[in-house]
Simulated scan of single mutants.
Amino acid sequence: MDPETLKYNAQQEPRHKEVCDMLAQEIDRCLPEAENKIWHAHPVRFLEGNPSVGFSKKKPGIGLMFWSGADLEEPGLMIWHAIG
C-alpha cells in the first residue's frame, strides 16, 4: 500500500481505518497499474493521468468515489454511497 495512503488511513478512527484499509487493498488488487496519490486531501488512483477511484472520510462514513463511472461499463457506479 502506498505510504501516503497508509498515513491517511492511520489518521481515521478505528472503524473507519478498517474500511479504508480494505478499500485500499481491493483497489490496489483490481487496479495494480494505477498511480496512487493523495489528491484533494484523500487517496485517489489515477489511470493514464485521470482520476478513477478514491475514498474519503465524509460525515456519515467513508465515501467511495468513482470518476467517469460510465466509462467503466458497470451499472450503478454513478451512485455515491457511504460505508461505516
Rank of each mutant, 00 (worst) to 15 (best):
Q12H: 06
R45C: 03
L64M: 12
E26W: 01
P60H: 13
W67L: 07
P14C: 12
E13V: 12
V19P: 10
G76A: 14
E13A: 04
S52P: 02
P51D: 05
P43M: 01
D21E: 14
G61T: 07
I38R: 00
R15L: 11
Q11C: 08
G49Q: 04
M78S: 15
E13Y: 06
L31H: 05
E4G: 08
G63L: 15
D28A: 11
A10S: 14
D21M: 05
E4S: 09
Q11S: 12
G61M: 08
C30F: 10
F66T: 04
P43C: 05
W39K: 08
E33D: 11
S68Q: 14
M65R: 13
R45W: 10
D21W: 02
G54E: 01
V53D: 02
N36L: 00
N36R: 10
W80V: 15
S68L: 09
A82I: 03
I27N: 01
L77R: 11
D71H: 10
G49S: 05
H81Y: 15
K59V: 11
W39L: 01
A24P: 04
P60D: 11
D2A: 09
K59T: 13
A82G: 13
E18F: 03
I27S: 05
A82L: 14
I38V: 08
P32A: 06
I38M: 07
V44D: 01
L72F: 12
E48N: 13
L77H: 10
P3V: 08
Q12L: 13
V19I: 12
A10Y: 09
G54I: 00
K57P: 06
L72D: 08
E26G: 07
A41R: 06
L72N: 14
K57M: 11
Q12W: 02
F46I: 01
T5S: 06
C20Y: 00
E18R: 08
Q25M: 11
E33S: 11
A34C: 04
W67F: 14
P32D: 03
E48M: 05
V44L: 00
A70Y: 11
W39T: 05
G54N: 00
Y8W: 05
G49D: 07
L31M: 06
V19M: 09
K57S: 12
E74K: 15
E73H: 14
S52T: 09
Y8H: 01
